[in-house]
Design a protein around this nucleic acid. Sequence first.
DNA 1: CTGTTAGCGCGTTCAA
DNA 2: TTGAACGCGCTAACAG
Lengths: 348, 348
Amino acid sequence: MSAKGQPVTLGEVAKAAGVSIATASRAINGSTRRVSEDIRKRVQETADRLGYLPNLSAQAVAKGASSTVAVVVSDIADPFFSAIAAGVMRGANEAGLVVTLAAADHTPQNELDIVRTFRSQRPRAIILSGSRSVADPNQALLDEQLEAFASTGGKVVLISQSPSPFDVVELANREGARELARVLVERGGQRFGIVTGPQRLMTNRDRVAGFREGLEESGTSLETDAVVEAEFSRDGGYTGLRTLLSRVPEVDTIFATSDVMAIGAMTALRDLGKTPGKDISIAGFDDIDTARDVTPTLTTVVAPLADMGYRAVKLAIDPDAARDPQVLKVNTSVIVRESTPVRERASA
Amino acid sequence: MSAKGQPVTLGEVAKAAGVSIATASRAINGSTRRVSEDIRKRVQETADRLGYLPNLSAQAVAKGASSTVAVVVSDIADPFFSAIAAGVMRGANEAGLVVTLAAADHTPQNELDIVRTFRSQRPRAIILSGSRSVADPNQALLDEQLEAFASTGGKVVLISQSPSPFDVVELANREGARELARVLVERGGQRFGIVTGPQRLMTNRDRVAGFREGLEESGTSLETDAVVEAEFSRDGGYTGLRTLLSRVPEVDTIFATSDVMAIGAMTALRDLGKTPGKDISIAGFDDIDTARDVTPTLTTVVAPLADMGYRAVKLAIDPDAARDPQVLKVNTSVIVRESTPVRERASA
DNA sequence: CTGTTAGCGCGTTCAA
DNA sequence: TTGAACGCGCTAACAG
């Protein structure tokens, strides 16, 4: 039983059941189920008995279509992406699809290599999560790959920003940040600062721009020095905050363009002897799980990350494949927690 | 260019280059590279020009071996598993392998289904992360599947507990917890409590047992009521802590069997009006990223999660496949942070 | 070194 | 309804 051997093939099942391979195929997979019930039963039984499992690769070759969806993330250990991945996996599972995953590690070149490898797998769809970059020299090559993939019947879904020739699940970054700014002004914020990830990423651009708009609509503005760019990570939030405070020590409210950065910034604040949520208000974006477990709990913009991944799959397997590219806008909402208490206004 | 079409096949490349398919195959893949340099170059060029990408499924069928590693996790959104997955992906990437991922959602039945699906993919290896359960009725069926997979040339690596008929990457749960207990006693802990995940999971068993040992070796003991079992999650930590404190209000030091639980427990403490790291010490296990960002920063046992995933892949692609099952023990270390200050001993 | 032939495991025509 | 034959894209054995 446990001697080295080869997997059971459909042919062996067929022979053991005394039918042809074609019949066995129909009985087990039954694309158009036209096989007598007793035969079907007999074949199924011998298949079970022999422990037959269809060879997905062979099926893919024969059918010319696989049952795989390929997903690119920047970093699976980042809660932002792991939440998206969780949603994708749920959706894929419901659809009987297999998920293959690769991490681009924030490097456009890797992203390109990954997409090439993915194309070799002939997946049904490729889902790209992660922000688009502006003026990325690799972008053209990447688009070319995706275009080619799409032109051979593959589906491309971006969890990113429109406009795009492909389907896009797009988070309302700008609107979310704008609403957040309004809320923070309402709560008494007067001197604002921003710690943001690289501005070449559209996500950061939009969040900063939206926040700015929100401030202006509320009659407040942002000093030039009050926007600090750093790595789009926890450590970036840490260093970014230090830079910000050294430049503009009198800020009372800080917006970090992601929760991950905000959490790093909060730690930095404490290391500077200040108490986040008391000395200085701070808010993030995304509402990752950890946001409610840090102290103070973090005010943020809720992004339904898992849901976005789930919807991306749904878009990908949409039967109406010939339709025009679709943009699925995902709305956000602001959730106020302890990190942004109501501040008393300094008397004018 | 962007009209619907089929992917370029090796045959088309061969024809365009004026060589046979076999030659084209050798030129591009070159298992045993014995093809004249100029031909190789010409074929490669036409392949690039045509945008040819090998069909991995077809290769897998022809070779009888795929270039895929399949990974089972409980929940990819859990930082414990996403860290492991990150390591796996890095290792797979280095080896030119594709990673397929599935989430069992803490359900043994799902795990079984996933392994079956994975077997259909004929991956080179299946990596199972997540603790083994004791007395799991599905365990036999699962082992049967894995056994069958292994007997047909597949490699199985468990990130779990020995003993096992397969390769195992095993974290020193017991030893780590034991050392943690010693450290906590040294720092003045006297009345201990434990919030643990389900005891059917070996991970929790080992961590609790190890902690107990460490206490006993330090001349301390644990009251019966002081061990509370709850869900192995953030929320489990939250509810578990409340139960614990209602049963044994006078505990001064708490061990949660994972950082995720510890973080939930800390939040629960605060909701009860107590300050973690002051009124009550608390420590976790795993050292997930968040451990250093909560307040107070969390004392814990460092588990090199990403490294474990990485090593699991290395084991899986070990050329010496015929060797006996191997156990790779992974050591831990205790890192003391703010959540467990030195406590003054109550005078005896 | 190259081309021809025979598979790999499976789906799907086409007759029977 | 069933089976024989062919094809999917590719690799590997065998000749030349």
